[in-house]
Structures are given as structure tokens and as C-alpha cells.
Design a binder for these strands. Structure first.
Ligand SMILES: [Zn+2]
Ligand SMILES: [Zn+2]
Ligand SMILES: [Zn+2]
Ligand SMILES: [Zn+2]
Lengths: 145, 145
DNA sequence: GTCCAGTTGCGACTGAGTCTCAGTATCTTG
DNA sequence: CAAGATACTGAGACTCAGTCGCAACTGGAC
């Protein structure tokens, strides 16, 4: 989760022009706890009559991904979605029930990656870890039924 | 990498009918070291005049994924690809240069996942780790230039 | 205020993946 | 081995995410 001010600040800092559509996008992305697709944003924009074009949303999302404000994730279903997050290296834990995404630090992963590199003979450059399960709330909700 | 016999055996064992198109598919998938897309297979099929339909390839690939003979991976570019592999839980290391995919065991990952679960309060059900880098051969090739 | 590169929205386009359906091939059972 | 039930197939229409080209617009530097 991230707030609109941060998004706008990052755009400004990244040398992007601060345009009305981008401000609008920032407000759409801000405060989201779960993952969202480009089309989710498009729907939201339409509902608020922001008049954003499809292409603009994709382009802005690319820019935000570039800046690390937003990250692409691949859901098990094969869909592409985004989560708002901070730029530092981290991994996402995604609730398969409500879609909420939480980020987690690396714990011992770098070591695991290094070991796998040694085992396979590869020079590992990047890695992507995605975890799926039930968040605390959905777990509680499920237990109480 | 996997051989055609294994693929066919798995299909048979999984309750699927052993049809000519599926045998053909098995021979296309067998022996591949790298990742491939559905369209790669379609091209290969056309080149060998196997007369496989587009839909058939997608359906067969789904079946193989179901059986664990093949696994969907998501390339950093956003493309969906497949790798042939064994059914046991494992992770893929993908060469960003030649596309070769090697599989690696879990090393300490289960522990990392458990720890992330504890940190975030999630009950982690599944995880997906994909590593990208340069394979030993590409590394050597690069060094010798 | 002027100016221009960066940006926008539109609509056409692409390409992956799905669906439908009539025809075909496989397996089972006798 | 024949026959029936049914799983499977290929063709093509279709959907939907994402991209592209372009004319119009605008943020912000001077
Ligand atoms: Zn949840
Ligand atoms: Zn990491
Ligand atoms: Zn390689
Ligand atoms: Zn694992």
C-alpha cells in the first residue's frame, strides 16, 4: 500500500511530467491493498469519470513499474496484475481469497539462490519469488464459519 | 529435459486417450532443453507437417501441465512459456541468453517460505520461485570473446 | 506569453488463448 | 472383431490484453 503523494513524488523525481492523467492514476493506485489489473484501473477511472484512455493507463503503469512504485506479478491463473509497493528488493505474498498483497523481505533467499547457482553452474542474476496462500483475515473468516 | 516415452506413459497413466496428435506433441516436447511457447510448438509442428491444430496444442499442453510433465513459467518479458520437467516439486533456473532451463531442488526454500508466513501472518499454500541468469555454457562463451 | 518535447486519447491493430461444432478416432465391452 | 459411447480433433470465429501511429494538446522551462 502506498499513498498518492508518494506516487506523484516518484514521478516528478524520475523526470516524468506531472500531468493530470498521471495525478488521476496516482489516486487510483494509492491505498490499494490487493493486486489489480490494468483493466481494474480502467473501470475505476470510468466510474469516476476521469476520462483516462486505455493506452494512457498502460503507459503510466509502465512508468510506475520502471520507478519501482508498482510491480508486475503473475497470478497462478496466468493473469498479469500489479501491486503497489516500495522500490527495495522484496517479495510478494498474495492472498488467494481476497487478493491482498503483502510484501516480505528476503530472509534466507539470497543464500538459497546462491546455492542453486552453485548446484546448477548458472550465474544467477535475478530471481522472482511469489507466495500464495490465505491472509490472516481470510484465515480468521474461514475459521469462524 | 524429458523423453517422448515418458510423456506418452504419463498421458496413458493419467487416463488420457493416446491419440496421434498427442504422440506427435510428445515428440515435439521431448528433448527440449529450453523453454518454449505454444507457438513454438505450432511452428515446429507445421515444419514437420504434422497437421496439428492450434487448439489441440493448447489443450494438450494443458493436459501435460496437469500431469506435471510440463510447467508454465513466466518470463521476465511477460511472456508465458513452458518447460518440460518432472512432477516433483522443484524450481527453474532459466538462462536469459539461450533459454535453457534447468531445475533445482528446494534447498532451504521451504524454511524461508515458512518464515515469511510467520512474519506476514499468512498461511502459505504454494510458492513459485524462478531464477534468471546465464548458464555455464553461455557464461563460457561470453568469457572467451 | 511562447515554444517544443513529452504526453494524451482515439481507434486500428496484433497475437495469445478460448469456444463451438461437426466430424473422427479411441477404448471398452461383448 | 464389431459396435457404441465418448473423448478428442481441426477449422475458424471470437475475445481480450496490450501495442502502435497519429493528430491534438499541455506542462514547464525560458
Ligand atoms: Zn485474504
Ligand atoms: Zn529476493
Ligand atoms: Zn545459456
Ligand atoms: Zn519450492
Amino acid at each position: 500500500m502506498v499513498n498518492a503523494r508518494d506516487v506523484i513524488g516518484a514521478l516528478e523525481h524520475g523526470g516524468y511530467r506531472l500531468t493530470a492523467p498521471r495525478r488521476a492514476l496516482a489516486s487510483l493506485v494509492a491505498g490499494r491493498e490487493g493486486h489489480f489489473t490494468a483493466d481494474d484501473l480502467l473501470d475505476a477511472a470510468r466510474r469516476r469519470h476521469l476520462g483516462l484512455g486505455r493506452a494512457t493507463i498502460f503507459r503510466a503503469l509502465d512508468a510506475l513499474a520502471e520507478l519501482g512504485i508498482v510491480e508486475r506479478i503473475d497470478l497462478p491463473s496466468g493473469e498479469h496484475a500489479f501491486v503497489a509497493c516500495e522500490a527495495a528488493h522484496h517479495h510478494h505474498v498474495v492472498c488467494s481469497s481476497c487478493g491482498r498483497a503483502t510484501w516480505a523481505s528476503d530472509h534466507g533467499l539470497e543464500r538459497v539462490a546462491a546455492e542453486i547457482g552453485r548446484e546448477t553452474g548458472y550465474r544467477i542474476d535475478t530471481h522472482r519469488l511469489e507466495l500464495f496462500g490465505l491472509c490472516a483475515e481470510c484465515l480468521a473468516a474461514k475459521a469462524s464459519t
